[in-house]
Structure formats: structure tokens, C-alpha cells
Design a protein around this nucleic acid. Structure first.
Length: 267
DNA sequence: CAATGATCCTGTCCGC
DNA sequence: TGCGGACAGGATCATT
């Protein structure tokens, strides 16, 4: 599932693949894939791609016209550069055509992914509401401790709240809690200041290590080059039977999602 | 404001 | 071999 390291890897790939190119049209093959709050004509040139950036798990693209795109891969979304244009698959939900004849395909079997088109003065409400980036100075132990004070839900589910921290998903939430030695079910407001500092360090370490390896490819995730990430070989608890210490792991459901944790290493 | 559960959706896997 | 059901899960919305 694309989380911060995977989305960042895709963003870097997109910069190389389509940076500077003029976008001449956006074509939707399946309804509700392309959302157009800009109410602009997507069959006409939209401008040249100036920047491709990431915020949380969102992909932000700015165009020379001032229009901007906000894309989200959700679980199974994938951007693939087709050069020359390849056959569309049954999972191709939309594509972007460029002036040099290349085409960027948006594949998404489970159809949750979206590409939104905004005018310069518009902003995406979900992006606006995002919490701090975990790999910046704004995300530190003091911030986290403060952010958790009124939250009684399990720390694991709070880590998944994009308004508290942007970019963490199920896999890295499990991995960070294991590294920090904290039980996923622990009420968030019961974490001490040192535990918050440890958790911040664990989050940053696991995200940084994964990013260096191009992210985690569990099932669908691929880079723009259709390459897999390699961090799945270094997961310590997610999808595992035992932790690196050899202890049998517990698997529970929290907010409808699987949580893996070690009852010995995590307190 | 916080927390919870349903919802969206389809490919894959398991048991019978 | 085929089929039903569980499962995967990020974000949004309605409800409490």
C-alpha cells in the first residue's frame, strides 16, 4: 500500500518521467477517477508541468497555467509511463497525454485512486488538513506528545490519522511501534514524553530506511518504471509470524485493519 | 471535538 | 473444478 516512502519514490519517478512536459489532455476511462473542481476543459492543453511534489500520501503537480493536480494512489493506484503509448489494460482508469507523444497511464484495479484538477485559487481540503510531515523538524517529540493529549484511542489508530501525522499507513505504523517498543493498543494519551520522542525517532528511521530502498512492495506497489521497492525484505513485524528476536507475534484488528505486534518486545 | 463504523471496490486466497 | 466468503485498506461520511 503506498505510504510516504512509496509515494515519494513515485514522485521522484514522475519528475524524471514527465517534468517539463506540456500536458495536452486528461482522459478519464472510468467515472469518478478524475475529479474536476476547476471545471476546466480537460481535452485542451492544460500547461507545462513545473513541479511534482509530495504532501503526505498526496501527489501534487503544478502546471504553468496555474492549474494544479492532486493525485492519490490509495491502495492500488499506479502511474506508468507509456512510451510509445502501450495498450490500455482493463485496469487503466485514466491517462495523461503530453506534447511529445508520451502518455502517462493511471492503473488502479480497486478504483479508489483519484486525480483532481484545481484552479490556482482552489485548494484540496484534505491536503489542507494534513498534519506535519514526519521527516521534517516540525514533527518532534514535543509536537507528538501535545497532539496526543486529548486522544484516548489506541496509538496505532492515531498514527494512521493523517491530520496528526501525514503519510503513515498500516505497514509503517506497525513497524514504527515495534521499533519504539510500544504496544499498538496503548491509549495515545498514555504515552510519556520520552516514549513520544522514541516513537518519533522510530517513525523517522523506518521511513528513511524504506525510502532509501524505494519503498515496500507487498503486492501492487510499483514505481513509475514498474520497478518494485525492496524494503519488504526488512519488515520486522508486518505480515510476519515472529519478530527478529524470535518471539511469536500477535495479530489483532484495530479500526478494521490488521495490526502485528510482539507481546514481549512491546510494552 | 473525538471516536467509531460503514462505505467505496476488485483481485486473491482459503475452505468445502 | 467451482463457489462463497473473508480479506486487503486510505479516506470520507454519518452517527454517537
Amino acid at each position: 500500500m503506498p505510504e510516504l516512502p512509496e509515494v515519494e519514490t513515485v514522485v521522484r519517478g514522475l519528475r524524471t518521467a514527465v517534468g517539463g512536459k506540456a500536458l495536452i489532455s486528461v482522459t478519464e476511462l472510468r467515472a469518478r477517477t478524475v475529479i474536476n473542481p476547476a471545471k476546466t476543459d480537460l481535452t485542451k492543453p492544460l500547461g507545462r508541468i513545473e513541479t511534482v511534489e509530495r504532501r503526505g500520501k498526496y501527489i501534487l503537480v503544478t502546471l504553468s497555467s496555474g492549474l494544479h493536480l492532486v493525485a492519490h494512489l490509495r491502495m492500488t493506484g499506479k502511474f506508468i509511463l507509456a512510451d510509445p503509448p502501450q495498450q490500455l489494460s482493463s485496469h487503466t482508469r485514466a491517462y495523461l497525454d503530453f506534447d511529445d507523444g508520451t502518455r502517462l497511464l493511471f492503473h488502479d484495479p480497486r478504483t479508489f485512486g483519484q486525480i483532481k484538477v484545481y484552479q490556482p485559487h482552489q485548494s484540496d481540503p484534505a491536503v489542507q488538513a494534513l498534519g506535519p510531515e514526519p521527516l521534517t523538524n516540525a514533527f518532534d517529540g514535543v509536537y507528538l506528545h501535545q497532539a496526543l493529549t486529548r486522544r484516548q484511542s489506541p496509538i496505532k489508530t492515531v498514527l494512521l490519522n493523517q491530520q496528526v501525522i501525514a503519510g503513515i499507513g498500516n505497514i509503517y505504523a506497525c513497524e514504527a511501534l515495534y521499533r519504539a517498543g510500544i504496544r499498538p493498543g496503548k491509549p495515545a494519551n498514555k504515552l510519556s514524553a520520552p516514549q513520544c520522542a522514541n516513537l518519533v525517532a522510530a517513525v523517522q528511521a523506518v521511513l528513511t530506511e524504506s525510502l532509501a530502498l524505494g519503498g515496500t512492495s507487498i503486492s501492487d506497489y510499483r514505481n513509475v518504471d514498474d520497478k518494485t521497492g525492496e524494503f519488504q525484505h526488512f519488515l520486522r513485524v508486518y505480515g510476519k509470524q515472529t519478530c527478529p528476536q524470535g518471539h511469536a507475534l500477535n495479530r489483532i484488528k484495530q479500526a478494521g485493519r490488521s495490526t502485528y505486534f510482539c507481546p514481549v518486545c512491546q510494552k
